[in-house]
Amino acid sequence: MLQLKKKHRDLATGLAFISPWIIGFLAFVLYPLVASFYYSFTQFNILRPPRWIGLEGYAELLFEDPLFWISIKNTLYMLVFGLPLSLIVSLLLAVLLNQDIRFKAFFRTLFYLPSIIPAVASAMLWLWIFNPQYGLINSVLAAVGIRGPGWLVDPRWSKPAFIIMGLWGVGGSMVIYLAGLQGIPEQLYEAAEIDGASWMQQFTKITLPMLSPTILFNLIMGTISMLQYFTAPYIMTRGVGTNVPPGSPLNSTLFYSVLLFQNAFAYFKMGYASAMAWILFVLIMIATLVLFRSSARWVYYEGQ
């Protein structure tokens, strides 16, 4: 009896503490979630009430709208090529910084700084860096006699350009790796050293397995943010002075969220955009689930 009472009291205390989240969840998550699910079956321009059209919006997305598939393809490209590359580079940086080196604080700051620069500012900077005629990259290439590509104005190079720009901003995942690396007990390395394990062996046999939960974390977070990639392409890919909407050249940088935003706030197709949002949500759930499922095979948890 007393125990039950305590249980109730604990429940009340617990709920009281998390009540801000509950209210926020109901108002800013659950309601919008349900509403957007409803809107996704309607035609809705905000000014007039939504009109039910059933699955038409979804059908159009999947079977009629070529831009939808282009945006999926572009986003997948970033996921398949951009994300692993940035995870590798950030891991490399973290491993280097975790060594016994001088000027550690300096290097750590240098590698981390780009990731805290406002996305708008770094978009402007890279727009200028990628300028085919006077930009930093092509100037350097020209100095060694290479004629650089058009980068953001060349459909073959526009996505690689975004990947390069992304590599500059890997500081966030680097810091997380760094924290993970510092959690690996020193004794493991000492023991391996005595056994005569090479540096590479230590890396593959100790560092990687011990770091695998961190890798999983970065992988999931990276996937989610890559699927929502918006600010940089939105700012950097409007054909200047032309009628081409964001996503130029030749839709090569039309990423999923850019198309979604365009439909919602440029064409005011809120219902259609809601359907896109729900497809995105499902994609994220599937990706997360797949990563979690696969993690049983490659993520090492202490005490296992």
């Binding site: 054909g239 009628n243 909407p245 030749l250 064409y267």
Partner: peptide, 21 residues
């Protein structure tokens, strides 16, 4: 009423043809 999209699509077509694709 769908002029904005018409314009965007025209822009895309122009881009695609001028780039030779």
């Amino acid at each position: 009423p769908v002029w904005e999209q018409y314009l965007a699509e025209m822009g895309r077509a122009e881009e695609a043809v001028t780039r030779g694709v």
